[in-house]
């Protein structure tokens, strides 16, 4: 069975931060079309602060995710702060104290994060939010495992579904958040939250696959 070590896997969160910072302008631009244009700036601010606390401390994935979630929750307000904050904090809680992360634990981690989001937010799939990337990604991961695919193969399925989910937001009408003001005028633009979520999931999956490969060799 494929697993990777929780210890020292906090570098995954540093890679997430790099990806978010790299896409700061892009995320703010798409947010600016239907929102208030601060998504990239706020996300980059939060992820950068978290990365500064993680870097050089050889953190486990659990510790690094907890650091990230705490920073987002305490330093970034609005809607994205609590949503991503609770997502990462609950992910961290699920894997805390576990030495090895296998596919089942990985799925439980994301499911718990999703539960956290749904416990504070009111959005449903199809409302043009980050859930439109996260929910299908987790479903695809679980579906691949149910089909007897390996952890690595399931991670591939997760990335494909997250990006497909992100792209699906383009044709959706925003029903929650600031963009809901625009109603049908929000059609034709990607949701910034779904876009950042797909970026984060891709880094998580790619890095996890590398660790699985390294652990298996």
């Amino acid at each position: 069975m494929q697993t990777f070590a929780n210890a020292s896997a906090g570098d995954i969160v540093l890679d997430m931060a790099d990806e978010i910072v790299k896409n700061r302008g892009y995320l703010s631009d798409i947010d600016g079309k239907i929102g208030d244009g601060d998504h990239g700036v706020n996300m980059a601010k939060g992820f950068t602060m978290a990365a500064e606390r993680i870097r050089g401390n050889d953190m486990s994935l659990a510790a690094a995710l907890d650091t990230l979630g705490t920073v987002l929750l305490t330093e970034i307000g609005g809607s994205m702060g609590p949503l991503y904050g609770v997502l990462f904090m609950q992910c961290a809680e699920t894997i805390e104290g576990k030495d090895e992360i296998d596919a089942k634990l990985f799925a439980a981690m994301l499911a718990s994060g999703l539960d956290g989001i749904q416990s504070i937010g009111s959005a449903q799939v199809g409302d043009k939010t980050l859930l439109d990337a996260l929910v299908p990604a987790l479903a695809a991961f679980n579906g691949a495992l149910a089909d007897g695919k390996s952890f690595s193969e399931a991670l591939d399925a997760l990335v494909v579904a997250a990006e497909k989910g992100r792209d699906s937001t383009k044709e959706m009408t925003a029903r929650v958040g600031r963009a809901s003001r625009l109603g049908e005028r929000s059609i034709g633009v990607l949701d910034a939250g779904a876009t950042s979520c797909a970026l984060i999931l891709k880094v998580l999956a790619t890095d996890a696959k590398e660790k699985l490969a390294a652990a298996g060799s």
Partner: peptide, 12 residues
């Protein structure tokens, strides 16, 4: 106190 037109943090 939040940013302009943006909720304060849970910490605040």
């Amino acid at each position: 106190v939040g940013e302009l037109f943006s909720s304060p943090t849970a910490k605040s």
